[in-house]
């Protein structure tokens, strides 16, 4: 039996394909990004090391600050709208019948499985200044609120963030719902029997028990905001001006439009550091102990 489990060539054959693929396509590129972030390279000619020049240039680049602000705003929309709304929906669904629940789950989750292109084009037509769903809706309600949502420099980033929020609401909803469903019902019922209102019972009992799930929701929402790219690329092209640029967009422009691979790598390095930092902070602050139901 021992022999069965430890023939060296068996192990090598099993481990090697995955390991080689992973090393070449994931680990090696990560290393390269960091190295290139200290260099100037156009992708063809030999690379020149320039030390911290790229980083200095980045911190002087006004688009960098626009991108930072947009990443933060995007994350903020998800944080203050998506997570609370998903929580309320998840808790409300808890006391519905089986068939209603199934219908609601499916209708909330369907946008999540669509491709980002379909979702963005759908919303492009919904936001359309002349014939879009939203402006026509306002018109039908007799409100004079018609405007071009995606070309206003302040409305654009929010309009885009709302699309992302709409698409992934079902995702956050399902995560919170499954976690809330797993909380033993007697905790909540004991509180209600003691004269606590439903809302209060959820607020003081169910929600604190979901903290581990909130940790994941938060990380997904915030890193999702920092990483946003495809929504902007499809819906506004980064515009008006640079008003909907994000860090990924900045990287994309530097590397693939201007051929500055070194500078693009610098942006990528800053982006990954930012994501790791956010994950670390949330891991330290939220749900430090594991909850086990016995």
């Amino acid at each position: 039996m021992r022999k069965f489990f430890s023939r060296p060539w068996h192990i090598v054959v099993m481990v090697l394909p995955a390991l080689v693929l992973f090393l070449v396509m994931v680990i090696y590129p990560i290393g390269i990004v960091v190295v290139h972030s200290f260099s100037q390279w156009d992708g063809i000619n030999p690379m020149i090391f320039t030390g911290l020049d790229n980083y200095r240039r980045l911190f002087d680049d006004h688009i960098f600050y626009v991108a930072l602000k947009n990443g933060a705003l995007f994350a903020l929309v998800l944080l203050v709208l998506q997570i609370p709304l998903a929580t309320i929906l998840a808790l409300s669904v808890l006391n519905t019948g089986r068939r209603t629940r199934r219908f609601l789950r499916i209708s909330y989750f369907i946008p999540t499985v669509l491709s980002v292109t379909v979702v963005c084009q759908l919303w492009l037509s919904a936001y359309n200044a002349e014939n879009g769903l939203i402006n026509q809706l306002f018109e039908m309600l007799g409100m004079d609120y018609r405007q071009d949502w995606l070309s206003g420099s302040t409305t654009a980033i929010f309009a885009i963030a709302i699309v992302n929020m709409w698409q992934y609401m079902g995702y956050q909803f399902i995560m919170l719902f499954s976690a809330a469903h797993a909380v033993p019902g007697d905790y909540y019922e004991a509180a209600v029997l003691d004269g606590c209102s439903r809302t209060k019972a959820h607020l003081y009992i169910t929600i604190p028990l979901l903290q581990e799930t909130y940790k994941y929701s938060l990380i997904i929402a915030i890193t999702g905001g920092l990483n946003a790219f495809s929504n902007m690329y499809i819906m506004t092209g980064g515009g008006p001006g640079y008003d909907t640029y994000t860090l990924t967009y900045l990287m994309h422009r530097a590397a693939f439009r201007m051929g500055q691979y070194g500078y693009g790598s610098t942006v990528a390095t800053v982006l990954v550091l930012q994501c790791l930092l956010v994950s670390l902070i949330i891991n330290r602050l939220v749900a430090r102990e594991q909850i086990v139901y016995t």
Binding site: F5, V15, F22, I30, V33, M251, Y261, L271
Partner: peptide, 28 residues
């Protein structure tokens, strides 16, 4: 199976879970 470093090897592959793909778009 049983071999030395099997846990380390597995944990090593989990690095991929924390890296968003667009970060390594350029080297890819």
């Amino acid at each position: 199976m049983r071999f030395r470093g099997q846990n380390g090897l597995r944990m090593f592959t989990s690095i991929g879970l924390f890296i968003p793909m667009q970060v390594i778009l350029i080297p890819l």
